[in-house]
Amino acid sequence: MQLQFLGTGAGTPSRERNVTSIVLDLQGVRNATWLFDCGEGTQHQILRTPIKPGKIEKIFITHLHGDHIFGLPGLLTSRSMNGSGDPLTLYGPAGIKTFVETAISLSGSWLTFPLEIVEITAGEVCNDEQFRVTAYPLTHPVECYGYRIDEHDKPGALNAEKLAADNVPAGPYFYDLKHGRSVTLDDGRVINGWDYVGDKIPGRSLAIFGDTAPTERATELAAGVDVMVHEATLEVAMEEKANSRGHSTTAQAAKVAQESGAKRLIITHLSSRYLRADCERLLKECQAIFPHTEMAHDFAVFNL
């Protein structure tokens, strides 16, 4: 799987950073992508990547501030104009349904694909054969959530030596054995798959925060994740200003990663006051607390 950042700025676009949007490419798991937030200009950013809008399966919105949702109507209608018929599910706080339906209606637009809009609250958002997504409330002037994505554990490998020792011939029932099911062999024996399967392979985990000031729920959201994505809107010296507006500093993001036991931190959502020349200094503020910190830039790709 990969994370690709389409926009890494806060509030307004700048020459160096567009506003927030992140793509989770599920390559290696299934042929689909998920989008987290959709700020203005997101579809223009997509045009500069290999991402195909028709392959976007789900969109998760953290909150309804414009720099996180103003790109939605354009992306959805362009997806239709390109002829996509694949269904798409949109998740977001209360009001997201009214926003999207009003924009489409008043602009005389239409959709060629089934769109399901789910207005979320804290708790499980969706759960399928491969992933579970949970929303956690954050601290921001408007209702805002962070999303935790947990990949389900995968079955361990079949023990070929034990199968051979027990004279279990190869066959299509190996699929059932690998998933722990009981099967009946041609000679009448009934065997239990769990007797031949190794330890489960732990799934990967990811926490994507929306905008937030420090909050008690942060460490629960990011507990033990492989990758944590957190805003770092302002530098350490501007903590009071950041927190008063529902945002975090570099050091506060790093502290969450440290306290939650995250393995890796990627910071994003930087104020437009910062230029590329400032980035090394901001990154070092994080790394002084949590060394495994990286900074996202527009179009940066991170492997999970």
Score class of each variant (00 low, 15 high):
residue 2 Q to K: 15
residue 4 Q to K: 13
residue 7 G to W: 09
residue 18 N to C: 10
residue 21 S to V: 06
residue 22 I to M: 10
residue 22 I to R: 05
residue 22 I to S: 05
residue 29 V to Q: 02
residue 29 V to S: 06
residue 31 N to S: 14
residue 31 N to W: 00
residue 33 T to V: 15
residue 33 T to D: 13
residue 35 L to I: 01
residue 35 L to S: 08
residue 39 G to P: 00
residue 39 G to W: 03
residue 41 G to E: 06
residue 41 G to H: 05
residue 45 Q to M: 12
residue 47 L to H: 10
residue 51 I to W: 06
residue 53 P to M: 09
residue 55 K to T: 11
residue 56 I to C: 07
residue 62 T to W: 03
residue 66 G to M: 08
residue 66 G to Q: 11
residue 67 D to P: 03
residue 69 I to T: 13
residue 72 L to S: 10
residue 72 L to C: 10
residue 73 P to G: 11
residue 76 L to Q: 07
residue 79 R to S: 07
residue 80 S to H: 08
residue 81 M to P: 00
residue 85 G to M: 07
residue 85 G to Y: 06
residue 89 T to Q: 02
residue 91 Y to L: 09
residue 94 A to H: 09
residue 99 F to A: 13
residue 100 V to S: 06
residue 102 T to Y: 06
residue 108 G to V: 11
residue 112 T to Q: 12
residue 117 I to A: 09
residue 118 V to K: 15
residue 121 T to P: 00
residue 124 E to H: 03
residue 127 N to C: 13
residue 129 E to T: 13
residue 129 E to L: 14
residue 136 Y to F: 15
residue 142 V to F: 07
residue 143 E to C: 11
residue 144 C to H: 04
residue 144 C to K: 02
residue 148 R to C: 10
residue 149 I to C: 06
residue 150 D to N: 12
residue 156 G to E: 00
residue 160 A to N: 08
residue 166 D to L: 01
residue 176 D to Y: 01
residue 180 G to N: 01
residue 184 T to I: 09
residue 186 D to H: 07
residue 186 D to L: 04
residue 188 G to S: 04
residue 189 R to A: 09
residue 192 N to E: 14
residue 193 G to L: 00
residue 194 W to Y: 12
residue 194 W to N: 13
residue 196 Y to T: 07
residue 207 A to N: 01
residue 209 F to W: 08
residue 209 F to G: 13
residue 211 D to L: 13
residue 213 A to S: 12
residue 216 E to T: 15
residue 216 E to P: 10
residue 217 R to C: 11
residue 218 A to Y: 02
residue 220 E to F: 13
residue 222 A to W: 04
residue 223 A to T: 08
residue 226 D to F: 03
residue 227 V to S: 06
residue 228 M to D: 04
residue 229 V to Y: 02
residue 240 E to K: 12
residue 241 K to V: 15
residue 241 K to S: 13
residue 242 A to Q: 03
residue 246 G to M: 04
residue 247 H to L: 14
residue 248 S to D: 06
residue 249 T to H: 01
residue 250 T to P: 01
residue 251 A to T: 10
residue 253 A to Y: 00
residue 254 A to P: 05
residue 257 A to T: 03
residue 261 G to D: 08
residue 262 A to F: 03
residue 269 H to I: 12
residue 269 H to S: 14
residue 270 L to A: 09
residue 271 S to R: 00
residue 276 R to Y: 09
residue 282 L to N: 03
residue 290 F to D: 05
residue 290 F to V: 09
residue 296 A to H: 02
residue 304 L to M: 15
